[in-house]
């Protein structure tokens, strides 16, 4: 198992550098940040521009810039932002934003699995019943509606008309408006709407996956054999069938986990949620190279960790992988 994990890590190293190179080059092709910074200043001189370019090290050849970046990366230094919060260190910036992203995504993932697994199982158990048809139809609709659309509708209904939840942000501006004066409750209150929307968006495909995977497993001989041995329906479904049916679900969640940080920008932008995704959108519009690169490094490492967790979960569920 350990050897398997190490092999996976070694395999991911070239991938990691590949991604860095691509994003590094692509962002630099996108434009000149010095130009962008100074465009609203009519008094700027060419000399001042040149000094700024030199200051950021953008005058050096691209490969040279990249090696400098790598050297700093290995010292744990992701550089300083060009445009945000007066040139704050990127590590600090990501640290501030990452927690809110995690909070939102993990809550949505946890809730959607909590709902999707039992719903998928019951739907499979009662294939073609009214309940099953309702669940399948709703899930299909859920997979078709884009997250941003769902988000806007939710804001219009629950924030604008009903006024139950705030329309965006992670906190009330004035501490007096915290529910019961609690900072934590205030955050949860702000989180409710984006979490609900993200949960629904995540939920739908997982329900369909659990259902189809369960149907497939229930057809297997070993399920019939478990029944033939007199095991209770509960053990047959929730022990013998579920353990097998979860294998593709683990794959899916693993992939989702990787994509979830990259996929967050839409939800975070709609709900004005100060997470990494929204930060990334902001950094891109400002050509804030260090922040773009920093978030790329962050997402890549997170994806790598997600992959590892998936592999370990796999090994736990499926002995055929554990003993490779």
């Amino acid at each position: 198992m350990l050897r398997y994990v190490i092999r996976r890590i070694i395999y991911l190293i070239p991938l990691f550098f590949g991604i860095l190179i691509i994003v590094f080059v692509a962002s630099r092709i996108a434009g000149n940040p010095v130009q962008l910074m100074t465009v609203q200043n009519p008094h700027i001189t060419a000399e001042a521009r040149q000094r700024l370019t030199e200051y950021y090290g953008l005058d050096k050849p691209l490969y040279h810039q990249f090696f400098i970046y790598l050297a700093e990366l290995f010292q744990g230094d992701l550089g300083n932002s060009y445009a945000l919060r007066g040139g704050i260190a990127v590590t600090t910036l990501i640290g501030d934003y990452a927690w809110l992203t995690f909070e939102l995504q993990l809550a949505a993932l946890f809730l959607s699995l909590l709902i999707a697994i039992p719903v998928g199982i019951i739907s499979a158990k009662k294939q073609y019943s009214k309940l099953d048809v309702t669940v399948t139809t709703t899930s299909l609709l859920g997979t078709c509606i884009p997250v941003f659309y769902m988000g806007i509708i939710a804001i219009i209904i629950f924030a604008y008309f009903l006024g139950w939840f705030p329309a965006g942000g992670a906190h009330s501006i004035l501490p007096e408006r915290y529910p019961f004066g609690s900072y934590v409750l205030d955050e949860l209150w702000h989180m409710a709407l984006p979490t609900a929307v993200l949960t629904f968006a995540t939920l739908a495909p997982v329900v369909l996956l659990v259902r189809s995977s369960m149907l497939e497993v229930l057809r297997q001989d070993y399920i019939l054999a478990a029944r033939a041995s007199g095991l209770s329906e509960r053990s047959v479904i929730y022990k013998h069938a579920l353990r097998n049916a979860l294998i593709p679900v683990v794959t899916y969640v693993g992939l989702y986990f990787g994509a979830m940080l990259a996929g967050a920008p839409v939800t975070e932008t709609v709900f004005n949620w100060p997470g990494v995704g929204r930060l990334f959108v902001e950094a891109t519009t400002k050509l804030d190279f260090p922040v773009i690169m920093g978030i790329t490094v962050f997402i890549t490492i997170m994806t790598l960790i997600a992959n590892l967790i998936t592999d370990i979960a796999y090994g736990y569920i499926d002995p055929r992988i554990r003993f490779e």
């Binding site: 297997q220 001989d221 019939l224 013998h240 353990r243 097998n244 569920i317 002995p319 055929r320």
Partner: peptide, 10 residues
């Protein structure tokens, strides 16, 4: 079929 009548994960 003995290949399919034992549960692979236990």
């Amino acid at each position: 079929d003995p290949a399919t009548s034992l549960n692979p994960v236990f």
